[in-house]
């Protein structure tokens, strides 16, 4: 009978529209981005990175994260943002791409974990027709309903680009 109660609660959750997805937000060149937290296997400080000659431009190189060889991609270069050397707050988001292989994305800083409901996510198409495949939506935390109070005004104005990290690391040309 356990299955029954589980099902009812799931149905209740759906009708409430309270189903929220957890996103990890990070910054790149001053903008805020978000990615589904389930995709991020680990967040690590950058170990020494060895450049790989003749690799695609957005690849910073390879590094060893506790004995595991990881390809590190520069988030800025990958998204076509102005380049900058990694700083003290830089982190690498490790993504498990399957088959035991991990790819890291270097970001300027990791900001927070955000829980967004479906109503707080706009489709990528609102940005205009041709969005790259890794942009999956726009997050508008707490501002979606338009009833945001003055206190929340700053939050309401924030636009967070939701990216598909898996696509980001797999479609490296």
């Amino acid at each position: 009978m356990k299955a029954l109660s589980r099902k009812t609660s799931r149905a209740a959750a759906r009708s409430n529209n309270a189903a929220r997805t957890e996103f990890l937000t990070f910054s790149l060149a001053g903008d805020e981005y978000a990615a589904r937290i389930a995709v991020v296997a680990e967040i690590v400080r950058s170990p020494p990175i060895t450049e790989v000659p003749r690799a695609p431009r957005c690849v910073l190189g390879v590094a060893s994260v506790r004995g595991r060889l990881v390809t590190v991609i520069d988030g800025r270069r990958r998204l076509g943002l102005p380049e900058a050397a990694p700083g003290a707050r830089s982190r690498i988001l490790l993504v498990d791409t399957g088959g035991g292989e991990f790819v890291g994305v270097m970001v300027d800083a990791v900001l927070q974990v955000l829980r967004l409901s479906a109503l707080e996510i706009e489709p990528a198409s609102v940005l205009g027709g041709d969005q790259p495949a890794h942009v999956v939506g726009i997050g508008r935390p707490e501002g979606a309903s338009g009833e945001s109070t003055a206190m929340r005004a700053s939050a309401a104005s924030a636009i967070i680009v939701i990216v598909d990290l898996m696509n980001l690391v797999q479609a490296v040309a």
């Binding site: 292989e101 790819v103 690391v169």
Partner: peptide, 11 residues
């Protein structure tokens, strides 16, 4: 091994 991302890199 270098993995899928760098598979196209020669040498």
């Amino acid at each position: 091994s270098l993995g899928k991302t760098l598979r196209g890199v020669r040498g």
